[in-house]
Design a protein around this nucleic acid. Structure first.
Lengths: 292, 292
DNA sequence: TTTTACATATAAATTATTTTTATTATAACA
DNA sequence: TGTTATAATAAAAATAATTTATATGTAAAA
């Protein structure tokens, strides 16, 4: 069986028009007809019910069943290619979201340098959610990433590093700064400066505002911790981060008193199906050593 | 890319001789050479280092990486076929290990009969371990099965039904019968009558004997609960089962006092990648309703 | 009801891919 | 040095996939 036929099939269930699928793949329309016939013969089952008219095309139960597996097959194939590409360039690509990088990378870099491995790594610095996607797609061999509460994903191996709470960061001039700790709901009239999309703190923040029935005023989003801290220290708004971020002297960190607060969990993760070669294994071991 | 090439490749990494692989698949030797070349071109990487001499054949790191994905791809393909086969026969095949069947099937059957679905199911009555393998291979759509401690498998969706302890069953004439509860180590001189291979109680039993440094004398294994209980009641030996089994009047059930005793967990399980059609969904819902 | 437009199927020819047959190359070993 | 076991290569054959051209089916428009 050919993966090309599966690709035609997947596309057909999405686009639902034979001739458009053919266009998509730069082949002629009968090619799609024949590909589907091959699959139906192989599976000994009708996969798609077609009416020769506008947009009506029904995926049978068998078709739906195949579709699930077809997607998995194509994904496996693409990830295999990507992994091999990384292997060839003798680099291990590591996802390191900035906040986690700040906390852990100095030690990791030190260890790797001692072992002469520092030039064999490429780091990838995006938010934890984006990083997770990249890991799944096979772009990354390994990642250190944050999650709210322990991670659970069927395809991923997770080693939990630690769990830390979230804090609110405000300027000393802010009215909240006199207190040591607050309730999340005390923030309902504040302006917020947060990270851009793809950071777990956002998900945690979203959960808390929902729980407290708040409609927060987010005045700015940035990817740069320094930039955000600068604005906070000028009392432009308040921030919501874990304790990994460093903060200037005129910023105060406030504890949150609420029960059942989400935690920021740091995880060392990789695909269960990933094969680590000797070099990659060495790097992995060094990272493990560095963060524990 | 062709799955046939992957099959040749997988076999080659196992058999390690091109000509033998060719024989295995009833093709000529150059076919294997060309298949490997195609894969190496597609992956743009050497997969296998070959010396034209006895048994020396090294799978490269890239090859190992591909191998992992190749196995997954082939499995997906086979499972898809099997699932579709079940779908066509409009039957839902359900794994029901005997002990669990005894406890849950009467209620399930009653519900299914009311809905006129009883003739759309096929049950598969083996031990939980065997049942799990069948589920993974796509032979089964669904299973109720036992595990020691909660199950964790990447490819499987699990709904935990309940957790119950294991007990020791002895004849009233047995010297232990006077007690209400015992320690597992009190059994060190007993003769045991257990289930045959593929039942979770065996795994639990094995763990406990190991922990207690025991070398148990297992005098008989059977698949028939009635048969085993008969022997126990005649004081031929003692049994180790969960509380689902029914037992005659002259058999006594003893609690186990040990700490951290393994539990018998009943789970409703199915493949994450399994697509349930309307009929199958109905059956699934009825089973859920029956066991909760 | 006929026509038109859109969409898929089919037949035959073409092209591409895979496999085979026959042969050569290479290393190990007697 | 010749023999044996194994893999690679070249050319031909077989098989499979795709295209071109055309037929067929269906819904909507005229």
């Amino acid at each position: 069986m050919n993966t090309r036929d599966l690709e035609y099939f997947i596309s057909l269930t999405e686009i639902k028009i034979f001739s458009k699928v053919a266009e998509e793949f730069n082949v002629s329309q009968p090619t799609i007809t024949f590909a589907l016939k091959r699959l139906e013969k192989e599976m000994d089952s009708k996969l798609i019910i077609r009416h020769r008219t506008h947009g009506e095309l029904i995926v049978t139960d068998s078709g739906k069943q195949l579709l699930k597996h077809a997607r998995a097959i194509i994904r496996h194939f693409e990830v295999a290619k990507q992994n091999i590409e990384n292997l060839k360039s003798n680099k291990i690509s590591i996802g390191l979201p900035p906040i986690i990088e700040t906390k852990y990378f100095p030690k990791i870099a030190q260890h790797l340098k001692e072992e002469n491995l520092l030039n064999n790594i490429t780091t990838f610095e995006y938010g934890s959610e984006t990083t997770l996607d990249a890991l799944k797609s096979g772009e990354l061999d390994l990642a250190l990433l944050g999650s709210i509460n322990p991670m659970e994903d069927a395809r991923i191996e997770t080693e939990e590093i630690d769990q830390i709470p979230f804090y609110v960061y405000v300027s000393k001039e802010n009215h909240l700064a006199k207190q040591d700790s607050i309730k999340f709901s005390d923030l309902k009239n504040e302006d917020f400066i947060l990270f851009k999309q793809g950071f777990v703190q956002n998900e945690s923040f979203r959960q808390l505002t929902k729980k407290n029935g708040m409609h927060p005023n987010i005045i700015l989003r940035s990817n740069e911790t320094n930039n955000i801290m600068n604005l906070i220290s000028n009392n432009v708004g308040v921030g919501f981060f874990n304790s990994f971020v460093s903060y200037p002297e005129n910023v105060v960190r406030l504890k949150l008193e609420d029960d059942n607060m989400p935690k920021f969990v740091t995880n060392l993760v990789y695909l269960k199906s990933h094969y680590f070669n000797e070099l990659q294994q060495k790097v992995l071991d060094n990272i493990r050593k560095s963060i524990k």
